[in-house]
Design a protein around this nucleic acid. Structure first.
Lengths: 131, 131, 131, 131
DNA sequence: GTGGTCTAGACCACC
DNA sequence: GTGGTCTAGACCACG
């Protein structure tokens, strides 16, 4: 599993890691029982502080997605796939909620928001196509 | 001008103040040349520290929306309406962009995002109705 | 004596008043023994707070330029012309000193400063010509 | 980077800090991508409150000169050198402009101003030599 | 350790 | 009364 992290987009690094682990499980890249890269390993590979990786793994354990096996490391739990299915959506939902709250506070209509979503989605699609 | 501030939504208080001032200008509640409530006045009215209000006003000055008149107070500049018109949309657009980027990273489809927007908007509308 | 005051150039209003009184004396518009406009009179004429005018007159008294005559008002002292001759220059000198200090702190050379002086003076001359 | 601050010249401390950071960038003492001293570090080194330093850094961020890296510190942006080059001159130019305006209002000739500039510059040079 | 937000209260110049 | 600067210290999220 390889992580692509950005330090400039305002999303906490540990959250990016969590998100990518959940995603890998969703996509079947990481299977139940499989070992996840060690803290140090992922930290050096992603050029990130080990504490940050540890924090991400800690959160994932708390969510029941990872499980620590003595002397072995962390493995994906049996329940992980189920948990992840919902989690991705929930995370985006929360952020979206806060954006919508801000939009409402600024008297921006639902119509405007919908238009923005379409525009920005299209732009993002083009961006990722060229990258 | 009365400010309604929330300390529980993660948005800094000073930003909420800025945002509401811009909004009031957009809606014509605050006109060019008009005085904005004094720092201390708004601070007591909104139950917030004077420094926090001062910071918001300072930011608005830097944007060219407010202008300080020595010993008298702060007034809305002539350019303020123009500046405000674009600013509020742009701000929401930027945040939306980052959420959409995250959604894409999590393999969430545009359809899903649209559904989330509708759902959350409806919830927010109900919330604000009861408040 | 008529005062032209600006509230937007950062120079305290009371200083502008002082400066214009001194100037009027220098130019012979205000003569020794002559009455200066009353605080209220000048305040209304210049659309300025009476306290501000009072403060200016107080400073001018402290400098020995004005003198209070019971029941009459304030008159220009005999020493005023002498005092004023130097004062104008000194005031500008002080402000210039602070600007030069800032220039030095920013590694701007004397040559640069001279060039700026010439440029800005020319611009100011053109401005005042059209006004 | 070491800051030399004076509390007696009327220039706000946070502005002096901004100015010296810009200067360091101009001179190549601070390079793009390099970390600036931490808020607390600079605060103790310069015997100044941390909030004051934070304010200066915040202003520099708003100008696009510094960029915050989460949990790591502040670094000099790629655009900083360009921004700084123009900024320092412009700042002095603005102040100079206001002084010249005052000089004109007091009937001081360009010749007089030039003389003052030379005199005061020389004095300042001597001052800084002995310090 | 880092920056960021917020509070509380002092002091200043200006009107 | 007004805004502006500064200090002191608390709390938070992040790495």
């Amino acid at each position: 599993m390889i992580c692509h992290l950005r330090t400039d987009n305002g999303i906490p690094i540990y959250e990016q890691i969590c998100s990518q682990v959940r995603n890998a499980i969703d996509q079947g890249t990481l299977l139940t029982g499989e070992r996840v890269p060690s803290v140090r390993e992922l930290a050096t590979q992603a050029a990130v502080n080990a504490n940050t990786v540890a924090r991400a793994y800690r959160d994932l354990q708390a969510e029941g997605i990872l499980q620590s096996i003595r002397g072995t490391g962390l493995i994906v739990t049996a329940e992980a796939p189920d948990i992840c299915r919902g989690a991705r959506l929930q995370m985006v939902r929360d952020r979206l909620k806060s954006v919508l709250a801000e939009a409402r506070q600024n008297n921006i209509s639902l119509t405007d928001v919908r238009r923005l979503v379409n525009e920005e989605w299209k732009l993002a699609a083009e961006d990722s196509a060229t990258t």
